[in-house]
Design a protein around this nucleic acid. Structure first.
Lengths: 259, 259
DNA sequence: TCAATAGTGTCTTTGAGACACTATCCG
DNA sequence: CGGATAGTGTCTCAAAGACACTATTGA
């Protein structure tokens, strides 16, 4: 570690406290957990997460969540959007997740990371615009790279918990699906994320009752009877829509905690 | 605003990116929303929040949430605990709330604030240890000081939303009550926080079913039939305890959003 | 025809909401 | 006794769960 003189800084002079603290600040970063559904031909669309490969130390060569330092005047949301854009991803759902600050999370220094949670539609063209320069790819949640950089595995776990708990009272699942989709698609999305089977009859009934779907009149072949294609009526997400899966909730038991 | 040369800094040289960012960092602060129940003789214990008065500009003289800058190596939780201790508050429930970063929230400069959410038991001795040096006091939620400093009114609103939504699926309400309390106390706590009446019979039934209470055998006078005193069996909060008030939820409608 | 998948109907069970009733204190 | 508050019982109704039944495709 070389020590040398680096800078002669020019700063604005203002009242005492502000001045004092302006010289000693923790580092702040943003990391983004972007989920999407695998665009598979086969059954069972997997839930996937976007990871990038690190070039520099520490953890050079390991996979991590897209992220970057926060510039002095930059909005946190903006860092998240910038990082996603760098990976070729443009239109997505984005919300703040949690702020991580365990001191050991970065071996170099203490870094506070504001984590974001994002969803990308399965049919977003951006899905394939990856690998254009950046070393980024999608990973199935059950086949993640062994040790990830920093505490990114923890962040990912919190993000999955959030996604699961939000399925119960939001329409987030619809944001993962393509513009048009079938009821079996939707059911399978819930099952993949919740990690268990749902009853077809009860599921369809709840969805129908919510009146969130617009039939397109078209159908899709599937080996058996073709399934009707629907699109999501975002206009119908009028406030108090609650979606509750008793079976799912009781079976889950472990972990969670929400926030 | 005077411009002058302030420092000739000595820093450690390490790989390029880290070095670059170490010189230009956003400021980071922690603000805490501490709730408690008013220890009133009269009916209807109010929900209260702890505010401190600012001495310095900006917003000198206005009331704000307890908070401070984050020291370079200091844990965020620790800043929250430190601030609460400075106000004489020691044992409390604490969890991270949300990270606020609207650029206009501080007129001096861009400050990222990690907000915390805390609950203090109504009978905590610390409740009265206030005003020992620090200019801090409890405010009823419906009589807050008119303009608060920074965006602290927004932070408070998010904290109230969080408290409300967590009442539905946690035992947080028990953490606000004294060590021993009556069912009417508990019911009134829920009502105060949710902002509406609950049916006594249905409420008692749910609480009893949850088997969370330990009878103490004692009673408390109350103008009519004395109410039985209970204490909370924390050991019984074994994971899957769900507390759901349909009446409350449907009546609320507006706002919310959780996180 | 059967295998496979989509979609509907219906009975049961759970539990929330409403509300009446009983209990125990004071005066 | 009546007023006040505490506490219980019970009927109703909405909605979740289980599961059987029908529908539509391809081979």
């Amino acid at each position: 570690m070389i020590i040398c003189v680096i800078s002669t800084q020019i700063v604005e002079l203002t009242p005492k406290q502000e001045q004092r603290e302006s010289m000693e600040r923790p580092a702040v970063a943003v990391d983004v957990v972007l989920f999407t559904l695998a665009d598979e031909i086969e059954r069972h669309r997997q839930l996937q997460v976007l990871l990038t490969r690190r070039y520099d130390e520490p953890f050079a060569g390991r996979w991590c969540l897209p992220g970057d330092w926060v510039r002095p005047e930059e909005l946190l949301d903006h860092v998240a959007l910038r990082e996603l854009a760098a990976a070729g991803v443009e239109d997505m759902y984005l919300e703040q997740l949690y702020t991580f600050d365990r001191p050991e999370r970065d071996p170099r220094q203490r870094v506070i990371s504001v984590a974001y949670f994002a969803l990308l539609r399965a049919d977003a063209g951006a899905r394939h615009a990856l690998n254009n320069g950046v070393d980024a790819r999608w990973w199935n949640l059950d086949q993640l790279p062994q040790p990830m950089a920093f505490d990114h595995h923890d962040i990912l776990r919190v993000a999955v918990d959030r996604l699961r708990s939000k399925l119960e009272y939001t329409t987030l699942a619809f944001l993962l699906l393509p513009e048009v989709f079938t009821l079996p698609d939707l059911k399978q999305t819930y099952e993949t994320i919740l990690g268990e089977e749902l009853d077809r009859g009860n599921f369809y009934r709840k969805i129908k009752e919510a009146r969130l779907l617009q039939p397109t009149g078209r159908r899709r072949e599937s080996g058996g009877r073709p399934a009707a294609l629907y699109c999501f009526r975002a206009d119908r997400t009028e406030g108090d829509f609650v979606f509750r899966w008793r079976e799912a909730r009781s079976a889950r038991r472990a972990g969670a905690g929400t926030s």
